[in-house]
Design a protein around this nucleic acid. Sequence first.
DNA 1: TGTACATCAGTGAACGCGCGTTCACTGATGTAC
DNA 2: TGTACATCAGTGAACGCGCGTTCACTGATGTAC
Lengths: 205, 205
Amino acid sequence: MSQTRKPYHHGNLRQALVEATLKLITERGPQGFTLAEAARQAGVSAAAPYRHFKGRNELIAEIARQGYILFGDLLEHAYNGGKPTPISALSKVGRAYLAFAKRYPGHYIAMFESGVSLAGNSALALAAERASSVMTSAAETLMADLPAKDRPPAVMVSHHIWAMSHGVVELFARGTPGGRAPFSPEDLLESGTGIYLRGLGIIPK
Amino acid sequence: MSQTRKPYHHGNLRQALVEATLKLITERGPQGFTLAEAARQAGVSAAAPYRHFKGRNELIAEIARQGYILFGDLLEHAYNGGKPTPISALSKVGRAYLAFAKRYPGHYIAMFESGVSLAGNSALALAAERASSVMTSAAETLMADLPAKDRPPAVMVSHHIWAMSHGVVELFARGTPGGRAPFSPEDLLESGTGIYLRGLGIIPK
DNA sequence: TGTACATCAGTGAACGCGCGTTCACTGATGTAC
DNA sequence: TGTACATCAGTGAACGCGCGTTCACTGATGTAC
């Protein structure tokens, strides 16, 4: 009957803490959460999180790790091996990047704004590495048809695109500087990467 | 003789608090400072800051304001009206951007990473506006010789360049993702904007 | 030049609060036999 | 199938701490006359 009693064991506290923290950092920024509050939101005492995480940092690192995995999957799927054309595929990657930042702001914050360190956390470093390699190999495919002479390194190209994407997210997809830009983040990124690709010699016109 | 006694009045507490806070946010991020600690570092009681600022937010906003002024000045000086050539001038602007982020990390953080709101703070909004207009008018000069047809709006171009610059700072000039990139931030930004400018049709080759 | 007084810019004590962390504990679950 | 027991995943109380904020106060400075 009275099975509505709180069960003593949560069952999935680890992930519940992750999700509570995602909410908190989405609302208040990477430093704006406390273990105590995450515990409270998960309906658990303040001491409980210590059964699963050594402290704040480990929790944030776990969120970043999950984020990098999601991120890598999304980008890979969007790029789809560069089909049907490298240019259209890259445009999809750009939109996927913005969509990720928008749909998973907590993960994005943990990954790129929390100051979490990759060193000393091999699971996290691995996930980040893998996401990064997706972008690099996309850049590789992108330039496959280019004459080898003065073709820039793929890593460099992927970093350029990554930088512009990240910059658009931070400056124009959130609320801060210049208020609202006169262009949507999507338009801004698509036009920016378009001009960049023309500079690379990939778009002819 | 014993004039080494602490004077009752600080003399320049407002600015001293600004500088203490700059140090703190440089070391610990935008949320990692407290009014109490800033006061301590300025050698003053915890209640004293309230004579100058209503609270944390007002202090950070003041830092951002000073930052935008510095930033605008630096960029304007670096661009120097587009002389001797627009391309060389833009390259100087890029380096000035990175130099600003490196030399004034506290200001940079307050401006772009603290989540400070421009709305409801006209002095801050004004300074930000002005820095933004420096970049836009630089983009304008840059494209002056371009045929008017399919020349993108100057605001858009300035946003592209700003986004890439900011992305390079956040992703590759700090310590976080991918560890150290194989290229220096300066090289990355210069090559990136170079390719972008070629895409615009400004660099012929 | 001196004096009275208003104003300014600090002090320091006090408050309530929430956090991080530890501790001995206990209820629930899994497993060996 | 039942039982004994180890292990796991929670509790709740306690601690020390630092913060934000307010308050009546006081020392220093500026100014009117």
